[in-house]
């Protein structure tokens, strides 16, 4: 169903199939936070500069504040809430906790998602990234608390 302003879309979010009729101009972040109620994805700037709203679409990271929600039709969305496996956190989340990579935590969901996609990319290519590659991978995600060092150390720990 597509009329002028509304679209019906079918997608998967955190392994749950959903059908929604939404405004064609709705941003993905608003669909996730306000329509579906998953508040883990954070609005930091709504202009694609801070990375706090990063989610994965078919495994690839996007700024959900710059992405029209209609474009997830037929796709698979993963948010920070979808990473935990059963009762345990994802290794990326656990690494950030253990290495002190979380202070106020507002940038954390976006960091978790960008690191998750980077980890998959490295695993697929079977490469162990160096420090500079790690910095480059998270460069688009701003953090005002940690000075990044502990986040970088957390990522390093994922590639023993």
């Amino acid at each position: 169903m597509n009329n002028n302003n509304f679209s019906k879309i079918t997608f998967t979010i955190n392994n749950r199939r959903m059908v929604k009729t939404i405004s064609s101009s709705m941003l993905l972040i608003d669909l996730i936070r306000d329509e579906i109620g998953l508040k883990g994805t954070k609005p930091g700037c709504l202009e694609g500069e801070c990375g706090a709203c990063t989610v994965l679409i078919d495994g690839n990271p996007v700024n959900s504040c710059l992405y029209l929600a209609v474009n997830i039709d037929g796709k698979e969305v993963t948010t920070v809430e979808g990473l935990s496996q059963g009762d345990s956190l994802d290794p990326v989340q656990q690494a950030l906790i253990n290495h002190g990579g979380i202070q106020c935590g507002f940038c954390t969901p976006g960091m978790v998602m960008i690191i998750k996609s980077f980890q998959r990319e490295c695993d697929e290519k079977a490469v162990k990234p160096d420090r500079e590659q790690i910095k480059k991978a998270i460069e688009g995600n701003l953090c005002r608390c940690t000075g990044y060092t502990k986040i970088i150390e957390a990522v390093e720990s994922l590639f023993p």
């Binding site: 998953l38 508040k39 883990g40 994805t41 948010t79 920070v80 809430e81 990473l83 935990s84 956190l89 989340q93 656990q94 950030l96 906790i97 979380i102 106020c104 935590g105 954390t108 969901p109 978790v112």
Partner: peptide, 9 residues
């Protein structure tokens, strides 16, 4: 208090 921040809760 890092767990609730890491998991989006």
């Amino acid at each position: 208090d890092a767990n609730i921040r890491a998991s989006g809760q």
